[in-house]
Simulated assay, not measured.
Amino acid sequence: MKRLLLTLALSAGLAAPALAMEPLNQEKHINDSLRAGRIGDVIRKTCPTISARMFVVWSKVEDLKQYALDKGYKRDEVEAFLKSRTEKNRLKAEADAYLKAAGAVEGDPQSYCAVGEAEIAKGTLVGSLLRSSK
């Protein structure tokens, strides 16, 4: 029995390096969170009756950085990802597509308000970042 446990333990140890971390731009929670932040930012800048809940936004950003570090990503890797023009453009395009699919129409602030109000009402991550003055 001890021999079996030792063999399993060694096998698990040898297999561990094969379980490499996925690139940051493929980590679902991180990307979903950053996309939600971008969507919320566009809504608050476009809709005159919606603003950001800045303390919540700041808190979620800090939580997200800690999440990445806890998963084993290096601080410089996280910073480089967050500053990458390529990644910013990718997330911007994804956020724009989400807003369009949700009914936001460029040049129509009220359509962004409607999307924002719906996100708040549904209690989504985007909605948790926003406050309505209605």
Rank of each mutant, 00 (worst) to 15 (best):
E22I: 03
P23M: 02
I39T: 03
I30C: 13
I43L: 09
D41H: 09
P48A: 13
A18I: 12
C47Y: 01
E22F: 00
D32I: 10
V42T: 13
I39R: 01
V61A: 08
R38H: 02
R53A: 13
L19F: 12
N25Y: 14
L14R: 06
A20F: 00
A36P: 06
G37S: 06
K45Y: 04
M21F: 02
V56S: 05
I39D: 04
N25E: 10
R53V: 09
I39G: 04
L24P: 06
Q26I: 01
M21R: 15
L24Y: 04
K28P: 11
K60W: 05
G37N: 02
D32K: 11
R35T: 09
I50S: 05
E22Q: 07
P17Y: 05
P48Y: 04
L19M: 15
M54Y: 14
P48Q: 08
R38S: 05
L14Q: 10
A52P: 00
L14A: 05
N31M: 10
G40D: 01
Q26P: 01
I50N: 07
A18M: 11
L24T: 02
E27F: 01
R44W: 09
S33W: 12
K60S: 04
N31H: 11
Q26S: 03
M54F: 10
I50K: 07
L34H: 00
E27H: 09
A52M: 14
P48R: 11
S33R: 09
L19E: 14
V61T: 11
G37W: 02
A52Y: 03
G40V: 00
T49N: 15
F55D: 15
V42K: 10
L14T: 02
L14Y: 03
M54H: 12
T49Q: 15
E27T: 06
K60V: 12
V61F: 10
D32N: 15
I43S: 08
